[in-house]
Design a binder for these strands. Structure first.
Lengths: 159, 159, 159, 159
DNA sequence: TTTT
DNA sequence: TTTT
């Protein structure tokens, strides 16, 4: 029940591997970008394509799913809300703004780098199951967290 | 038909009277801000309300509707797409960003300053009809345009 | 987190006063219809308007809000999910279907019978506050429930 | 610009190969069903999954895309509007209803039977390109139409 | 009738 | 800068 509505729906490809930060023991944050494409026709009737880049952020359980299953090239569906943060730039003293979509719902549409037709990953583990990243400490060596196995079958993918 | 989706749905109140610009004879642009509210509960269980401000932009026919019917305090429903523009700041040389929602569909939910229950405006023209702004030259004296009466009953409100 | 998406967004006017049923002590159900309009142009270029009627259903707390604030003519924004129920018709033995939108989010856009500009209701209580129906036993005499005052300021409207 | 909103967003799997009908030379119609899943927890805390079936219909150019690229098992994203048709049943004389989603926007999320990771089809044509159905006369032998090659590169997939 |  |  709300007086207002703030909802965004995006479907596109992830621009780079998510950055993961652990704020507190209990709160993971994931930041990444998502590309959507717009096709328009100019006055001469020629078709052009532009790419729009969106800043996405996820918290908590959703951030853990991002950490474990989303990477550069992944195709995802996202539902969220817009949020604009502002701060004073240290150097120039100017007000700066950054608009983000806070993810409230996430659907994975591809695995292994967004290549919807590749067959390479099944050969990696030889059993046909989806291989997931349960840690990415190499990419973010400063972090120290463990995937919570409790509360569900560890072999069950949570989406 | 598209490979990606870029859709935002907003319902809220307009922060101030739209700024109207006429780029060419044929292309009106309207810029304004929209507020949405978010209620969240902090760790102490106390309820807080934040306001999110969105930059909206409309073009063409939609901008004309904004010019004529939207004002500070109006409650509106908007469907659009996200667009982030960037430019180099003249003074500092820094890259700056501004994210906007380009309006693709607009529904007016209130008239006369968003007061959904006020009866004052009907007394202004004494006939119970909705009174609309067909020009706002006072607010934007530098502009010179006329509302196009052709293509429809001038008494018909186009939404 | 989900593998699929089932989401409907409707904004329109309520066709008749909601029917309220109390299944158990704890679970109120509200059923009503919502009209949306579609304007289309036929092959001759003439404009036509059709009305689409949607079956809406709300449960629990949301149903209580519907009971107390929604009536015939109310303009509302609704977000929900589609659900199709089927049963065998007693007389004919035929399979029958009914598709409903289960309300997940509700925003009231008007008060007093959807008349967004009326001033009559404020004269009813003489204090400018919105008057709400806290019971509708006349309309639904078979029911016996009371609006729960606990859990919040009884003068606070919950949306 | 509209007074009301009637919008549905679905992401799921296609239940069976679309039925294609050609009403006139110029108007193709495609009918098919789409499954979405809902997970809920009962009073005992046990998790259950239900499947919701949606009736989808596409017209014109969109129907041609459905005809050529959508099949049983395909995963798709759809945006559309709800429409309920009614008729009197010939046998019983009863009023019957059928609610459909009229597709306004369609995004294909998988190829070859929804297997997002399968590599089998690329071996069918040996060049790694997506293989599309440009006719389905076997399935609908009564029809006689040809995919329009004009208006674009015939090798370009239109979404 | 889909999918995980 | 809106609104309740």
């Amino acid at each position: 029940m709300g007086k207002t509505v703030n909802k965004s729906i995006l479907l596109g490809h992830v621009g780079k591997d998510p950055e993961i930060h652990v704020l507190q023991a209990d709160n993971t944050v994931a930041n990444f970008t998502l590309a959507t494409n717009d096709i328009y026709r100019d006055r001469m009737g020629e078709s052009h394509e532009t790419t729009e880049w969106h800043n996405l952020v996820a918290f908590g359980r959703t951030a853990e799913v991002v950490r474990d299953y989303v990477q550069k090239g992944s195709r995802i569906y996202v539902e969220g809300k817009l949020r604009t943060r502002s701060w004073d730039d240290r150097e120039t003293g100017q007000k700066k703004y950054r608009t983000e979509i806070v993810i409230l719902d996430l659907t994975l549409l591809s695995f292994n780098n967004g290549n919807e037709n590749g067959a390479d990953y099944s050969s990696e583990n030889g059993n046909g199951a989806r291989q997931v990243r349960r840690s990415n400490t190499q990419q973010h060596p400063g972090q120290d967290y463990a995937y919570s196995e409790q509360g569900g079958d560890p072999n069950e993918i949570p989406f």
